[in-house]
């Protein structure tokens, strides 16, 4: 089995690419390639493209709006269109929505505050390349740091996401119950992350890559990267 070959896209203003590289290398044993937003092509044979967190293009216009139209995004869309694994975390999730690779949008947090804190998420399904190493219904901790994590979509889209089992993670309390106090950003249906229809694209607001080593305070994020490692 070959080690998962991953590439991390760096936009001007991206700042979580190193954390992502550490998490991926730890789980896969292979250092991911750093890709520049102006590149028109991806390296050959890439298994996974990651859009990491940060404030690409200064969040001008809307979070992720500028990055979504970068030259590399055409190649990322083609990769995703072939069923290639694609992960967007935080600003990366916002970019995937702006690029139309995932439905919905991320608005300013309902509290109007930038939320820099840990959250709890419930793993909604485990038959995916991203979550196979978790238990269904498992409650995991993840750091979050965002001003725009308020997931919105129209009711029909939300119903479809629920009906087709495309909600990946939901904000919950320590009993595993989804409730408003667990989703301070105001996300619709307490959605922290969603899959594409073929479940090969995952976008989520919290940062599993920042909890992959006991020295970071925990390893709740590691199974996501181990899942990806064994998907290659």
């Amino acid at each position: 089995m070959g080690a998962l070959k991953a590439g991390i896209v760096v936009f001007p203003g991206t700042n979580r690419e190193r954390d992502m590289a550490i998490a991926l290398e730890r789980a896969t044993g292979r250092r991911p390639a750093m890709l520049w937003h102006r590149d028109a092509e991806l390296p050959a044979g890439l298994d996974l493209v990651v859009l990491p967190g940060g404030f690409s293009h200064g969040d001008y216009l809307r979070t992720g709006a500028m990055a979504a139209h970068s030259p590399i995004m055409r190649a990322v869309a083609a990769h995703a269109g072939r069923g290639g694994l694609t992960l967007g975390v935080c600003n990366g999730f916002q970019i995937l929505c702006e690029a139309g690779l995932l439905p919905g949008a991320l608005l300013r947090n309902a509290t109007l505050r930038f939320l820099s804190m840990d959250c709890l998420m419930r793993v909604e399904r485990t038959d995916t390349a991203f979550t196979a190493h978790y238990q269904r219904g498992q409650i995991i901790r993840a750091p979050m740091a965002h001003g725009d994590g308020n997931y919105v979509a129209d009711e029909a889209v939300l119903d479809r996401l629920e009906g087709e089992g495309l909600v990946a993670f939901r904000y919950v309390n320590d009993k595993g119950e989804a409730e408003p106090a667990a989703a301070l950003n105001g996300a619709a249906r307490y959605i922290a992350g969603i899959f594409s229809e073929n479940r090969r694209i995952l976008g989520l607001m919290p940062h599993p890559e920042d909890l992959v080593d006991p020295l970071m305070g925990g390893t709740d994020g590691l199974p996501l990267f181990e899942s990806l490692a064994s998907a290659a």
Binding site: L61, R62, A65, H69, C97, E98, G104, A105, V152
Partner: peptide, 9 residues
Amino acid sequence: RKLLANSVI
């Protein structure tokens, strides 16, 4: 339609 507004919101 392409950039300045996001029709979702």
